[in-house]
Amino acid sequence: MTVPRFWREQQSRYNLVGSHCKTCGNYYYPIRNLCPECRRDGDMEQYKFKGTGKIVTCTVTHTTSDEFNDLVPYALAIVELDEGAKLTTQIVDEPEKVAIGKRVHSVFRKLGSDGDSGIIYYGTKFELDKE
């Protein structure tokens, strides 16, 4: 990841900003300029997701690239936000508690960094709701 590439998407990463198509009513994360459903008939507006949803599927990753090596074992999931859009995210709880169907909410965490002297990337991950 490079600084401009990250910075350009900062609103989506920090604040879960995506798109809502006023024509078909679908929600998308991250921001899309063209509605994949309606294409040119679509009417997209930016939308800030509430940050709540549920786990559609998940895994616990034990082997990864150097960039994420300090996080293993970490839980990864596809979360369906309450508005309907889905995204891939780490779940910051103890991996063994992460399971399909559990409710989650967004949290603000470090996503990574460019080594020890490079920029730190912040953004959204998810956490299990208290049961």
Partner: peptide
């Protein structure tokens, strides 16, 4: 802190 938490993430969480 968790592995991916620092003063900035904590500041954001408190501020939110």
């Amino acid at each position: 802190p968790d592995v991916d938490e620092d003063a900035a993430t904590i500041a954001v969480s408190a501020a939110r």
